[in-house]
Design a protein around this nucleic acid. Structure first.
Length: 443
RNA sequence: GGAGAGAUGGCCGAGUGGUCGAAGGCGCUCCCCUGCUAAGGGAGUAUAGGCUCAAAAAGCUUAUCGAGGGUUCGAAUCCCUCUCUCUCCGCCA
């Protein structure tokens, strides 16, 4: 959420900065709502003040044993008037709030302006793609020929965009998660966190998935019913829970409605969770293989930091994600996303793209964003600053890494002529010393 | 799933209709006193809004005692619904 003070003070400037990300700010609607809000709020508060003062007088009079009927008559009709004003105010404020909740974050000044992903800026490359002296296969063929990747069974169980892994690949998949968690906790100073995979709507509103992107989520209801009308403080149905689309949601919302003592900052959190995405709007995209699934695993990094250090933190965060690829010896490049390619909540995003030989392309494997105070404002996530006053935190998140896609990269980059797969050396200790998966293993 | 108890400020805890944003204590900050230490005295100490203001400071004002709704001139206090926590029983990975 943007700062409403800033929007009031300088709507043209904010509007033009939002236009760079392809968002048209409804300035006229905003200003109309603001004008309404101002007059109705003033009126409401005057009525409330009058009620409070008069009621106080009645109290004093009654305590003295005096007759208060004259004063009571004076405000006999005030109740109705007030009720009407209050409900009007509530309506206009929720309209304003809804508008505010659908406005994306402002891009940081260092973000390149652009219209599509072709305007993203490559900032560095690491590693050299391996040259193969045989005809290479994509990860689906490799996995299926090993007998360890089974999309048909997955389709029987759940439908398209799910997968079943077996034996060595299932093990490798698990090993990757362990390896990533160990690296971040032991070498990068993160605290490992276990979180719920089902969260309430307030969390998703906090990180920015709601109210705008509900169609991208999976939702579940607790039981059949019997909980009619239960709502959270923000008016959400408290029995509707959502499967997390990323651990960013529960991890970041840990600080929702909290005031963190200055000395506890920065918080560096890591969690390994499954992620669930409906992938609405991506029909026909990456339909083959593990690249785009309804369910996948991810190790997620979250930083909760002092506003002054959030851009340093972003560089660290990217370097932590990169470290995983370096240890796995997988070639990658780092991109700065342009204004129109960034996610809703981000002020600046680096994508890390790993080399996939079968696609002869770099593909996204991590996305690291500084959301500045955008999520913190939605969540009321604050810290006590140097002057002892509560101030909004900055939040950052990044994949470190997407496990399914890392597995894809390993399958394709470590494939051998005979159909076997070499295990990257850093993973061998997680695989009981195994250095190779062969076709025999899958039988 | 059944029975009961509870939810108040950073913490503890009082408050069952009226000058209550909330006694008291602890903690914290500042000041005074005390040649160190200990003890003592005084003041302050929630959050989010709105309005006035060029801005800051300041002033005025509204809301908030788990959440939402209701009764009332007036609700922390009464009523309803929900959530969460604790205790006991049952069930369960």
């Amino acid at each position: 959420m943007l700062d409403i003070q800033q929007l009031r003070a300088d709507p043209e400037n904010i509007g033009s900065r939002l236009a760079k990300r392809g968002y048209t700010f409804p300035a006229a609607q905003f200003q109309w709502l603001e004008a309404q809000r101002k007059s109705i709020q003033t009126q409401t508060q005057e009525l409330q003040a009058k009620r409070n003062a008069t009621s106080k007088q009645i109290g004093i009079a009654k305590q003295k044993g005096e007759d208060a009927t004259a004063i009571m008559a004076e405000i006999a009709h005030l109740g109705d008037e007030l009720k009407q004003a209050e409900s009007q105010l509530e309506r206009i404020q929720s309209e304003l709030q809804q508008l505010l909740l659908t406005i994306p974050n402002l891009a940081h000044s260092s973000v390149p302006e652009g219209k599509s992903e072709t305007d993203n800026l490559e900032i560095r490359r690491w590693g050299t793609p391996r040259s193969f002296d045989f005809t290479i296969k994509d990860h689906v063929s490799i996995g299926e020929e090993l007998g360890l990747l089974d999309f048909e069974t997955a389709a029987k169980l759940s439908g398209a965009r799910f997968n079943v892994m077996k034996g060595g690949i299932a093990h490798l998949h698990r090993a990757l998660a362990q390896f990533m968690l160990d690296t971040h906790t032991q070498e990068h100073g993160y605290t490992e966190i276990y979180v719920p995979y089902l969260v309430n709507a307030d969390c998703l509103q906090g990180t920015g998935q709601l109210p705008k992107f509900e169609e991208d989520l999976f939702a579940v209801h607790a039981g059949t019913s019997g909980h009619m009308g239960a709502t959270t403080s923000t008016g959400h149905d408290s029995f509707k829970l959502y499967l997390i689309p990323t651990a960013e949601v529960p991890l970041t919302n840990i600080v929702r409605n909290e005031i963190i003592p200055l000395e506890q900052l920065p918080l560096k959190l890591v969690a390994h969770t499954p992620c669930f995405r409906s992938e609405a709007g991506s029909y026909g995209k990456d339909t083959r293989g593990l690249i785009r699934q309804h369910q996948f695993e991810k190790v997620e990094l979250v930083h909760i930091v002092h506003p002054q250090t959030s851009y340093e933190a972003l560089e660290q965060l990217v370097s932590h994600a990169e470290k995983i690829l370096q240890k796995l010896e997988l070639p990658y490049r780092v991109m700065t996303l342009c204004t129109s390619d960034m996610g809703f909540s981000a002020a600046k995003t680096y994508d890390i793209e790993v080399w996939l030989p079968a696609q002869k392309a770099y593909r996204e494997i991590s996305s690291c964003s500084n959301c500045e105070a955008f999520q913190a404002r939605r969540m009321q996530a604050r810290f006590r600053n140097e002057k002892g006053k509560p101030e909004l935190l900055h939040t950052l998140n990044g994949s470190g890494l997407a496990i399914g896609r890392t597995l894809v990269a390993i399958l394709e980059n470590y494939q051998n002529r005979d159909g076997s797969l070499t295990i990257p050396s850093v993973l061998q200790s997680y695989m009981g010393g195994l250095d190779r998966l062969t076709i025999e293993d899958g039988k």
